[in-house]
Nucleic acid binder design. Structure first.
Length: 444
RNA sequence: GGAGAGGUGGCAGAGUGGUCGAAUGCACCGGAUUCGAAAUCCGGCAUAGUGCUUGCACUAUCGGGGGUUCGAAUCCCCCCCUCUCCGCCA
């Protein structure tokens, strides 16, 4: 049965649906209500109409397929015994057109349903604050006290350029705007930050360090939800591969199409990678300095956990990112994103915002999210529990990730918070071992 | 870039048009045997979806897509990937 083959169910689940379609069938009202918190209106009537039609046609299609299979089997048996098969052939032949029509119809409806489900973001967790945009985000806690400056503090651009270590014009010459060239001790400090973060997470927080590809295929981008909705934010190469916008993509997709033994969980991975973002639609935003670049480095933490552990894991992971800021002595606050400000795939997100004296404000430096089973469902990333020594059914695991931290923005924060009146910058103590004991960066 | 080989269940590996969702082996689980273990024997052991009388039935899946046929893992077309050799190369 190759002709007009219909992918029943499986495709709907693996390639399209990110929300649990079972939940939509069982409790559509609840889904609609929880999506409303994100300002998304679910067309319930349309879903029910499509779903009703899908059910009727699928049953009909499967009945025809069963009949066809049964008759074909009989033909095989009859031929084996050398009997006449013309009567059976005639009977099964009559099914052809009807079956083909039913299969095509079913495929079309599955596609409509998929297209509809693809547009739906994850459901916010019950603990997520209500709200429409970033103004409704909830500050959870603050750490550290912003330093008082007896003079107007410089921002990182002035500091870096005065040091002759931060060079935007040359970067433009080499490529385009939104890239940067760092030199000397500043480049070294940037590297030290990444090393420091990687070391703390891998040695003290229990993460396994991984080195990953920076180019990935479309399946990986779909797995974590960058595709199909956010293609314009990505850099695509002529051979169809994409530059990663975050290590989340290659690291999380490690478990795509895998069934892990429950004993292996939780799995905690950390990677340092460059990240590439086209920043389409952000023209005119943060054009000055290193805050918003096409290329930046990030240390990313990823966890794969059992569903019952994922909210504890989110707190833990957020704490790991906070620990970096604390060791660096950088004041920050933790913000719980409101429902309307959540990323597409996230059920709950904490942003860490670091204090930037040059801007006299807190700026995002980390984002820690629990995706629950949303990404796992797309990736078919599962684990299997043993019950009484017997292997149980595979279940979707929960995925989380968080920046620990964005290296470029962290460099900005160090420059601005540790600046001295003479334009030099003191090196935070924890970084000095990475810089051969260097205590301050000054103009040569 | 050139030449060749190949993609089948957790793994290895048969299967070239018909009771094939797929032999066999390994691994794994249960039972028998044993004081216990090993060995041996017996049985079980993919994923997803749909329906309902929730335990059964049905459907789909042998790299992906399309085609031929009453019927495809098996035949045809396109694509992807892996491996080997050569070339190039950090």
């Amino acid at each position: 049965m190759r002709r007009a083959r219909v992918e029943l169910g499986a495709s709907l689940q693996t390639r399209a649906a990110m929300l649990d379609i079972q939940l939509l069938r069982k409790d559509l009202a609840q889904v609609a209500q929880r999506l409303a918190a994100r300002d998304i209106t679910l067309d319930s009537a349309r879903f029910e109409a499509l779903e009703g039609e899908r059910k009727a046609i699928q049953v009909h299609t499967q009945e025809l397929q069963a009949k066809r299979n049964q008759l074909s089997k009989q033909i095989g048996m009859a031929k084996g015994k050398g009997e006449d098969t013309s009567a059976l052939m005639a009977e099964v032949g009559g099914l052809g057109d009807e079956l083909k029509a039913a299969e095509e119809r079913l495929a079309a409806i599955q596609e409509d349903l998929s297209a509809m489900l693809l547009t739906l973001p994850n459901l916010p967790h019950e603990s997520v604050p209500a709200g429409r945009d970033d103004k409704d985000n909830e500050e959870v806690r603050r750490w550290g006290t912003p330093r008082e400056f007896p003079y107007p503090p410089l921002d990182h651009v002035d500091l870096g350029e005065n040091l002759e270590m931060l060079d935007f014009p040359t970067a433009v010459k080499l490529t385009t705007s939104r890239f940067v060239l760092m030199r000397g001790q500043l480049a070294r400090l940037h590297r030290a930050l990444a090393q420091f973060m990687l070391d703390v997470h891998s040695r003290e927080h229990g993460y396994e360090e991984v080195y990953v590809p920076y180019l990935v295929n479309a399946d990986s981008m779909r797995g974590t939800g960058q595709l199909p909705k956010f293609e314009e934010d990505l850099f695509k190469l002529s051979n169809g591969l994409y530059l990663i916008p975050t290590a989340e993509v290659p690291v999380t997709n490690i478990v795509r199409d895998e069934i892990l033994p429950a004993d292996n969980l939780p799995i905690k991975l950390v990677a340092h990678t460059p990240c590439f973002r086209s920043e389409a639609g952000s023209y005119g935003k943060d054009t000055r300095g290193m805050i918003r670049q096409h290329q930046f480095d990030k240390v990313e933490m990823v966890q794969f956990v059992k569903p019952e552990d994922s909210y504890a894991a989110l707190e833990e992971l957020t704490g790991h990112a906070e620990d970096i800021l604390q060791r660096l002595g950088l004041p920050y606050r933790v913000v719980a994103l409101c429902a309307g400000d959540l990323g597409f795939s996230s059920a709950k997100t904490y942003d860490l915002e670091v204090w930037l004296p040059g801007q006299n404000t807190y700026r995002e430096i980390s984002s820690c999210s629990n995706f629950e089973a949303f990404q796992a469902r797309r990736m078919q990333a599962r684990y299997r529990t043993e019950k009484d020594g017997k292997p149980g059914k595979p279940e979707l695991l929960h995925t989380l990730n968080g920046s620990g931290l964005a290296v470029g923005r962290c460099l900005v924060a160090v420059l601005e918070n540790y600046q001295n009146p003479d334009g030099s910058v003191t090196i935070p103590e924890v970084l000095r071992p990475y810089l051969g004991g260097l205590e301050r960066i000054a103009r040569r």
